[in-house]
Design a protein around this nucleic acid. Structure first.
Lengths: 140, 140
DNA sequence: TTGAATGCAAAAAATTTGCATATTG
DNA sequence: CAATATGCAAATTTTTTGCATTCAA
């Protein structure tokens, strides 16, 4: 919490209970859409927060590097703690099933793009689309 | 075109000029949002199509496996021909810059998830987020 | 005290849906 | 002819914005 306060103040921003609650909700959900995070916030006992505050808080937390998001689902972004236990999501294009593999599986790829382009790939929670074992055969 | 007609009929669906025009527009743009595809369709000489028809056509074309989409941008999906010359997008979390590397760079990763999970990763046009060479240093 | 953040309501952006009509096979 | 697809308008869904008020530093 003090970490959060310091990080915010270091950027001229402020520590508010709303931001703390949103961060806690992100932590509690693992990874979830803005809407589910808002629901989680409401469940922590305090008053519900308007969507605008949830979005603005998520944005602030992402700027601090404490939160990040990916596109597992094709519709809404999925927020998670930047430090959350990590994995790469394997999303089936056909049935939507989501499997996971540890980020280490992408280590070689990350090394390669770092070497080739100086790009620091963040594979934590990356979403890779394709066909799961069950659907691959159906792939016409 | 006949390919398209056959593919559609094989699934009990129909060949329409709208679907042909949308497919042509996807081809012409390389990869673009539904909105930009609609604009491209309008540019082909024929009458503009309502958004609903564009979306429904894109959906049909994706079901046939002729078109696919990814999330390069954080907002709207990006449609492209499934057969389009392929590359993996490296999207900078900080400045939004998009770089590309050939899919081959991900070959090892693809082999690995196929072996471990039977998952057929489609890395063509995949979007990987992280920090570009310019922004990596700033990463607080 | 004062600039940043919130809350609320309204607006915007993106996509979907209902349904009558038109078209394909 | 029968079933699918279109066009149009309205409805949804998700996110953003304006602005007066509140609150952290």
């Amino acid at each position: 919490m003090t970490d959060l306060g310091d990080a915010l103040r270091a950027r001229g921003r402020r520590l508010t209970t709303q931001r703390v609650r949103v961060l806690d909700a992100v932590r509690a959900t693992g990874h979830a859409s803005a809407e589910r995070i808002a629901e989680q916030v409401a469940r922590d006992g305090g008053p519900a927060l308007p969507a605008s505050t949830v979005y603005r808080s998520l944005e602030a937390l992402q700027e601090l590097g404490l939160v990040a998001h990916t596109h597992v689902d094709h519709r809404v972004p999925d927020y998670h703690l930047a430090s959350h236990a990590t994995h790469i999501h394997l999303v089936c294009r056909r049935c939507g099933h989501v499997d996971e593999v540890p980020v280490e599986v992408g280590a070689g790829f990350a090394t390669e793009v770092a070497a080739q382009r100086g790009f620091a790939a963040d594979l934590t929670h990356a979403a890779i689309h394709g066909w799961c074992a069950a659907c691959a055969p159906e792939r016409t």
